[in-house]
Every structure is written in structure tokens, then in C-alpha cells.
Amino acid sequence: MPRYRDKTKKAEIMSLEDAVKKFMHDDVVVAYSGFTGFNRNPVAFAWETVRQKIKNIHVVDRHGSVCTWLLNAVGAIKIYETDWMGWGEMAGKLDVNLERGYKAGKVILEDYSHGAMAMRFLAGAIGAPFIPYNAPLGSDLYNPKYDALGKAGLRGKNFRYPKKKFIQMEEPFFGEGDTVLLPAARPEVAVIHVAQAGDKGTARWRGVGTIDKEISFASDKVVILAEEIVPEADLRKNPESNQIPYFVVDAVVECPWGAYPSSVPFYYDYDAPFMRGMDAASRNEADLKKWLDEWVFGPKNWEDLLVKLGSKKLLDLRADSVTGYSTRMMRGKKPAPRMKMPLSVARSGY
């Protein structure tokens, strides 16, 4: 929501453990960066959140990710506003732990559509209370009966909980049928994993932007996790490549490989076999417990987890500097062919 600041924020450089301790608490309303389980998930932060046993988390999300998978694996999410409760696309579609929790009545799930969540974050980012969107009329998503937060008595609880899920109305300016008003998304904390952050807090990534800039501006506090902290002066040489200005950033954590097993374009690729292993483990509770003990509670810290993965794995996942992804990684049954250019372009141009 629109808010005046008495003084400019000063981004604090801190450790992963301290950042989770400072910004996460029971009942926090949080949003994560990236796209599904594949791109720039702030995994290390969610991983540390699980280790610090934060509970009753309310996630406002553009869809599930490795972060929400980890939190659901220990039942840490209480309220989940999202449009897609999958997480791994081709490497594990549905979040089985979330489904289990939901069916047992432990999770409140508010369904929107992907475009609608994007628009809600956009409204939150630009300080607008709501935004009109041609959300799918006639879809049960916009059936007045299906308002999960309303059913739980949470509507209007405070400024993070809009009084209504949506309002369908006649489009008043041009007379173009009905449109839907969607409330702004207003999380307390945005957790954003990026490639580089300046020592003052300016942040940069390469590859798709998903909705991360909007999430950062929609939230009260912003924690940046970066593959590397670089001199702020260096990022100022090509400012058009920066996405998040430092004045919205509260904390910067340097966390190499912190998005594993999702990818950071031009740094490392996603680990699809590892994600398939997570999906398989979630199918029964004994396997899940074993997996969590091994991969979440076992390692001494995030670095220790990387040591456990081993240099061969990290080498295979390391992105090459031209394409931004790895061609050494086995994703299917055969290795990636060596390519010089996209063959559809070679064949018929653009």
C-alpha cells in the first residue's frame, strides 16, 4: 500500500541465518521470486525458514515453487493464495504435501488465475488498491461461493486481507461488457533471489523477469539473496540491466547456489533429477521424513549442503556463458546435442 518513508532504507548485508531470524516470524505474509520450481527460487531462504521452524506462514504467490514445496513438506504454510499449487512442471507437477494438508483441512487455499495474481501484484506495486482485469467470467474461480478466506472469516482482518476476493462489475468507461476488479496483493516480506546485488542493494538478474519487480514493490520489506555481491559502482555502468533499485531493499544475503535445485540463468541450471527425487519422496511420509533429515536437517549449513551435492554435480549444472544454461546435464535419456544456432531459424529465418 502507498506509504511515505521517513528516511531511505539502508540495505543491510547479513547472513542467511540472521536474515531469516530478522524477517520471518509465525503468521508472516510472504511472497517468493522466480517461476515454478525452475527459475530463481530463493530456496536457501525457505530451507533456513524450515530449519528455524517458522509456522503458520501465509504465502501470497504467483504459483508453487521449491520454496513452497519445502514449507509444505513440514506443514509450515497455513494460508496459500495462489493460482497453481503445482511446483515442478515436468519434474513433479502437483505438490503432494500441499494436497495432503489441504484435504486434511490444515491449509486454507485461495484460488486465483495466473494472470489475476500477476495483476494483483502489479496493483500492489503501483500503490493501487485494486485493478480491473478481464478475469475469466463464468469460471468457478469467480464464483462468489468459493471464497476461502471469506469462509475462514479472514476478510478485512487488516490491510493485507481485502474485504472481498473480487468484484464483478459493468465496465464503466467504454461499456465493454463486464470486467473484474481484483484487490492488490500486499505481502509483508518479499524474498527475491537474483544474480547480482550491489553492496548498496541494487539488484540485477538475467533471463525472465516473471513478477519479481512487482512483488518487491508490493511488499513492505524486501530481502535479496544474490549469487554474488558486487561493487555498487559496477552495476551503475549499465543501469538499464538493473531491475530493483536499492531504496526498496532491506537486506542483502550473499548465497551462491542459493536457488538450487532451481536455476539462475547464466550461473547454473535446474536439477530435474533431484526434483523428481523430491516428488517421489513426498509420496509417502516415511520417505519424506528421510529426505528432510538428509537434505534439510542434516547439513550444518547451506554450504554444507553444496559440499554434499559434490563438485561433479555442480560442474554439470554450471551454466555456460553464451546460452546461460548447461548442456552437460542429463535431462532425459540422451545427452544434449551440440548446437550452433536454433535450427528452426537456420531453416526458415525469424
Binding site: H63, T82, D83, W84, M85, G86, K93, L94, D111, Y112, S113, H114, G115, A116, A135, P136, S139, L141
Partner: peptide, 8 residues
Amino acid sequence: TGSGGNSD
């Protein structure tokens, strides 16, 4: 999984 972008 729910809508994702399907309904949009």
C-alpha cells in the same frame, strides 16, 4: 493444480 494460466 488449479488454473495457472489455463483460465486466462
